[in-house]
Design a protein around this nucleic acid. Structure first.
Length: 237
DNA sequence: ACTTAAATAT
DNA sequence: GATATTTAAG
């Protein structure tokens, strides 16, 4: 039913579960031992913001305490990125503002303004997201679909966690100003080559895992990978 | 720099 | 074994 599309769309954001209610995806992917080993706790006391809202605007220098004196951060392997619903929300938001046409990895990334997020991260996610939209279109156009209940996979759930703006589903409408009006995106700094050397990576959307002699109280540590610890969010382009 | 496809890790 | 994310190639 298309009762009040404009209504639900303007309110969906408020219906999102609160941070406390959300099960941090990244944490479920981390074994208890790893969590302990890296001081990652499930406590909902003061969860370090997964996303750093405004650009820290670091002055032209960085703390060696942050990076332990290792400069070649860009060469180090970066922890696997876990797309939490919140991150994805930011993603969808950015895409919505840019419009499908201009929604390319780089611009999306800039709009999202998430510390440590790389362009390839966004590109990858965008790829999956497009596939998702595709599948969704197929289902909604062919047999009438209640609008809900597309897929039930983990992926679909993540994507469903933030509603797809209606205009996403159109193939390529050159003039669809009837849905929503985009706010001019002015804040995109074009040549933002200022490296934000801010390593606040223990933040939870990055699941850093390595085998730093994680003593397992239990027989099982799935932490037996050969992986380099790296928490240096320096993005380059 | 964008997209698509393959590789790898979980 | 499937899938989520990364890495490589077009």
């Amino acid at each position: 039913m298309i009762e009040n599309e404009s209504n639900w769309f303007s309110n969906w954001e408020q219906q999102l579960p609160k941070p406390d209610e959300l099960i941090p995806l990244s944490q479920t992917l981390i074994t208890p031992n790893l969590a302990i080993a890296f001081d990652i706790f499930n406590h909902h006391q003061q969860p370090p913001p997964e996303i750093s809202p405004p650009p820290p605007a670091v002055s032209g220098e960085f703390d060696s305490s942050d990076i332990g004196g290792d400069e070649p951060a860009r060469t180090l392997k970066r922890p696997r990125l876990v797309w939490t619903p919140q991150l994805h929300k930011r993603f969808v938001d950015a895409v919505a503002q840019l419009g499908i046409k201009n929604a390319v990895p780089k611009t999306i990334m800039q709009l999202m303004n998430v510390d440590g997020l790389t362009r390839e991260n966004v590109a990858s996610h965008l790829q999956k997201y497009r596939l998702y939209l595709k599948r969704m279109q197929g289902l909604s156009s062919g047999v009438n679909n209640g609008g809900a209940g597309f897929g039930d996979s983990v992926t679909d759930r993540l994507f469903a966690s933030s509603p797809v703006p209606p205009h996403f589903l159109h193939q390529s409408q050159l003039n669809c100003d009837n849905v929503l009006q985009y706010m001019p995106v002015a804040a995109i700094q074009q040549q933002q080559q200022q490296q934000h050397l801010h390593a606040q990576f223990g933040s939870s959307f990055l699941s850093r895992q390595n085998n730093q002699s994680v003593r397992g109280s239990y027989g099982d540590d799935s932490a037996n990978d050969k992986r380099a610890l790296s928490l240096f969010p320096i993005g380059d382009d």
